[in-house]
């Protein structure tokens, strides 16, 4: 793009970002600091503990978003629709008149392709909304709150937790690394609870509870 043309567009985009989106983002960031980090800090948690808890909370948020978006239900609905359309296509194959068969088959094929692409894009969007955006935005927020300068002030290094000499030469736990430990811990906890509850249901005590109607 010519510089003379791109300059006003860039200026406009910069204006939207700086005057509309940035104040909102700053307010959200400050709000999150007050709601989440301050209580954790007052509870005596170190920055490492705070980031770990934030990671776990974001993991929980991903689970909630997944449930809200009804990803699994939509996937199931698509499968049914896809099967139905395939059945129609199979029916078209039985037509004797090859001209009609060709036209109908091509239309049906295009239709299936379109449905499939729509499904893939929605799946990609759900994936991004569920996992990527919460992770990226939270890490950006954390990198602003626990900037290397601030961490050096608090912990004396750019790490949340300095590690002693170790075989993998890892000098310390950084903000992203601690965040992901917290994030995946939440999924591990969820999985453990699911397995335990399943086992409990299968066990004689569980059966007894089910028999009593006491499933909760």
């Amino acid at each position: 793009m010519m510089p003379s043309l791109s300059a006003p567009i860039t200026d406009l985009l910069n204006w939207i970002w700086l005057h509309i989106l940035t104040p909102v983002a700053l307010a959200v960031g400050k709000g999150l600091e007050v709601i989440i980090l301050r209580p954790l800090s007052e509870a005596g948690l170190s920055p490492f503990g705070q980031v770990l808890v934030v990671g776990m909370l974001v993991g929980l948020l991903s689970m909630i978003i997944k449930r809200l978006l009804k990803t699994q239900e939509k996937e199931e609905a698509f499968r049914k629709l896809f099967e139905k359309k395939k059945e129609v296509e199979e029916g078209i194959r039985q037509i004797d008149d090859w001209k009609i068969k060709k036209v109908l088959y091509e239309t049906s094929d295009e239709d299936i392709d379109e449905e499939y692409n729509k499904f893939i894009s929605i799946k990609f969007a759900h994936f991004g909304l569920t996992y990527l955006l919460p992770i990226f935005l939270t890490l950006y927020w954390l990198s602003c709150v626990f900037s290397p300068e601030k961490l050096t002030e608090i912990t004396g290094s750019i790490f949340l937790l300095k590690l002693p000499q170790n075989p993998i030469h890892l000098p310390g736990l950084s903000v992203p690394l601690t965040f992901f430990i917290g994030y995946f811990s939440s999924y591990t906890i969820k999985k453990t609870i699911t397995i335990l509850s399943k086992k409990l249901k299968k066990s004689p005590i569980g059966d007894l509870k089910i028999a009593r109607g006491d499933t909760k």
């Binding site: 692409n117 893939i120 894009s121 929605i122 990609f124 969007a125 991004g128 909304l129 990527l132 955006l133 990226f136 935005l137 890490l139 950006y140 990198s143």
Partner: peptide, 18 residues
């Protein structure tokens, strides 16, 4: 991270419109 969020956000919307 912010750039990754912007790229992911843009790609998600593009993936839906495509």
């Amino acid at each position: 991270w912010l750039m990754a969020a912007c790229i992911a956000g843009g790609a998600i919307c593009g993936g839906m419109v495509g």
